[in-house]
C-alpha cells in the first residue's frame, strides 16, 4: 500500500513540476509585477497601487474589454452548457449511426484553436462565406459578421458554441451513470418524459452540471484570445476587444508589463467573483430543491 502511494506520487511529479513552473511561479511573479512599472527594457521599479489608479484614469479601452468579456461569459456559458446537455440527452441511447453523430459533436473540439479561428473566418466571410450564402439562399441578407459592431461579439459566441465536445462527453458519462431502475420505476408509476427528466435525470446530473459551469466560466474567459487575435484584432472599434487580448497588447506590444500584470490580477479577481456567485446560486438552488 505504501509502495503504491509512493508510485502514485512519483507519477504525479511531472504534473506537479509542470504546474509549479508554468502556473504557480508565473502567477506569483505576475502578482508582484502588478505593483511595479516594467517596460522589459529597463529593470522593474516599485509602483505600489499606482497601476490601478493609472488604469482607472487613463485606460479607456479597459472598461470596454471588461464588459465584452463579461458579456461573452454570460452569453456563451449557458449556451454551451445547454447545448452540451441537449446533445447528450439526444445522443444518449445506442441506435444506428449514433456513434457518427457523437463523433461529429466532438470533432470541432479537436481542431487546434488557430485552425478553428481560420475556418470560422471563412465561414463568416460576408460575401464568399458559406453562412451568408446559405442565408441568402433562404432570402435573408446576412450581416457583415465580423465588421458590424452589433454582430461581431455574437459571432464569436456562435463559434464557441460548437466547441463543446468535452462537456458533451462528461454529460454523456453522467447520463450513463444514472441507474436504469429509476426510469423503470417512474415508468411503472406513469411518469412522463418531462417528469423523468425533471425528477431523475436533472437532479442526478446536477453535480456534473455545476462542475461544467464553473469550468466553462474559466475557460470562456480565456478562450476569447485566439479568435479575437486571429479574426478581428479587437475590431470593429473594440467590439471584440476582450480582456485577454487587451492584456496581451498592453504587455507584449506596448511594453507595459506592470499594468498588464495589474489587469491580469483584476481579471482573476473578476473571474473569482463570477465563480463564487455561480457556486452560491447553484448551491442555494439545490437546497431549495431538496424540499420539493
Amino acid at each position: 500500500m505504501l509502495n503504491y502511494r509512493r508510485t502514485l506520487r512519483w507519477m504525479l511529479l511531472p504534473y506537479l513540476m509542470g504546474t509549479v513552473i508554468l502556473i504557480v511561479i508565473p502567477a506569483i511573479v505576475t502578482l508582484i509585477l502588478a505593483f511595479t512599472q516594467y517596460d522589459l527594457l529597463s529593470p522593474p521599479s516599485w509602483y505600489g497601487f499606482n497601476n490601478f489608479r493609472d488604469l482607472a484614469q487613463f485606460d479607456d479601452i479597459l472598461p470596454r474589454a471588461m464588459l465584452n468579456s463579461l458579456l461573452f461569459v454570460l452569453l456563451a456559458v449557458p449556451l454551451r452548457i445547454l447545448g452540451a446537455l441537449a446533445l447528450a440527452l439526444f445522443l444518449e441511447h445506442r441506435r444506428r449511426g449514433v456513434g457518427l453523430y457523437r463523433t461529429a459533436v466532438y470533432l470541432p473540439t479537436l481542431i487546434p484553436d488557430v485552425a478553428y479561428a481560420l475556418i470560422w473566418l471563412w465561414v463568416f466571410n460576408p460575401i464568399y462565406g458559406p453562412l451568408n450564402q446559405v442565408l441568402e439562399a433562404i432570402g435573408i441578407e446576412g450581416p457583415g459578421w465580423l465588421t458590424d459592431a452589433r454582430f461581431a461579439l455574437p459571432a464569436i459566441v456562435l463559434m464557441s458554441v460548437f466547441q463543446i465536445g468535452e462537456g458533451f462527453v462528461v454529460l454523456l458519462a453522467g447520463l450513463h451513470n444514472i441507474p436504469r431502475d429509476y426510469y423503470d420505476v417512474a415508468a411503472v408509476d406513469g411518469g412522463t418524459g418531462w417528469q423523468k427528466f425533471r425528477y431523475i435525470t436533472f437532479p442526478l446530473l446536477r453535480p456534473w452540471l455545476i462542475l461544467l459551469t464553473l469550468r466553462d466560466v474559466l475557460l470562456t474567459t480565456q478562450n476569447t484570445f485566439t479568435p479575437a487575435y486571429i479574426m478581428t484584432g479587437g475590431d470593429p472599434y473594440y467590439a471584440t476587444m476582450f480582456l485577454p487580448l487587451h492584456i496581451y497588447k498592453e504587455t507584449f506590444e506596448d511594453f507595459r508589463y506592470g499594468s498588464g500584470a495589474t489587469m491580469t490580477v483584476l481579471m482573476i479577481c473578476g473571474v473569482s467573483v463570477i465563480l463564487i456567485t455561480v457556486f452560491v446560486v447553484l448551491k442555494g438552488w439545490r437546497n431549495q430543491n431538496a424540499y420539493d
Partner: peptide, 8 residues
C-alpha cells in the same frame, strides 16, 4: 466598404 474589405 468594411464588409467588402473584410471579404477580401
Amino acid at each position: 466598404n468594411a464588409e467588402a474589405e473584410s471579404a477580401e
